[in-house]
């Protein structure tokens, strides 16, 4: 692997920073240099949050250049559309099929883009686009806060790190009380991707 630039995007409170921390730790444990940075604005919750993770033999800038990211992991559809421009034409988008309309949409000042519009924006450069029903799956599991780990499960199928390393880091980063359910969410995410392939294939 020459380099891997990832973007993780969503709304404050969705566990984006923990997810990108875990990817970074997994890459470090797999022997790579990494830099990651989070843009989270001023408040605790509710705003658009994006985390950038860069993995290579040697990394200088923590910031990815637009048009050069390899993967976008979006926890919400509008955020997928917002950040897709960072991808190179070869890049992959995995987006959670969830719409969280911003307040300006709820108040009627702006309109939430349609699924067709989101798909158009995401696939501008013929990127691979996987829309996963993450929120639904983790609800079935019984804890919607495991969405971030579910999404990592999805991404892990396309990333060059061993499943043992993923599971070790997840187990390390999460407190005992919620460790097992998160490991289940990770496995569930890994099952979801081939299922999509089958559906679409």
């Amino acid at each position: 692997m020459k380099k891997l630039d990832l973007l993780i995007a969503g709304m404050g409170g969705q566990g984006i920073i923990l997810a990108s921390d875990i990817i970074a730790e997994v890459a470090l444990a797999s022997g790579y240099d990494i830099k990651k940075t989070d843009t989270r604005g001023m408040a605790q919750r509710g705003g658009s949050v994006v985390s950038q993770v860069r993995i290579a033999e040697q990394v200088f800038s923590p910031l990815i250049r637009s048009g050069e990211a390899d993967m976008l992991l979006a926890f919400e559809k509008l955020e997928a559309a917002r950040w897709a421009y960072y991808l190179g034409g070869w890049g992959t988008v995995i987006a959670n099929n969830l719409a969280l309309p911003p307040l300006t949409v709820t108040l009627g000042y702006e309109t939430y883009p349609s699924d067709a519009e989101i798909t158009r924006l995401v696939k501008r450069q013929k990127n691979h686009f996987y829309l996963v029903n993450g929120t639904e799956r983790v609800k079935e599991l019984g804890n919607i806060r495991t969405l971030n780990i579910f999404m990592l499960g999805c991404a892990s199928l396309l990333l060059p790190f061993s499943i043992d390393t993923w599971e070790e880091v997840i187990a390390q980063r999460l407190p005992a009380k919620i460790r097992q359910i998160n490991l289940s969410a990770f496995k569930q995410g890994r099952k979801e991707m081939p299922a999509i392939h089958l559906r679409e294939g």
Partner: peptide, 19 residues
């Protein structure tokens, strides 16, 4: 050789909110 890509201009913003 490849000019940088541009963000989609027309999307609703998501500013931070009171919880």
């Amino acid at each position: 050789p490849t000019p940088p890509t541009k963000p989609a201009p027309e999307l609703p913003q998501r500013p931070p909110l009171l919880c």
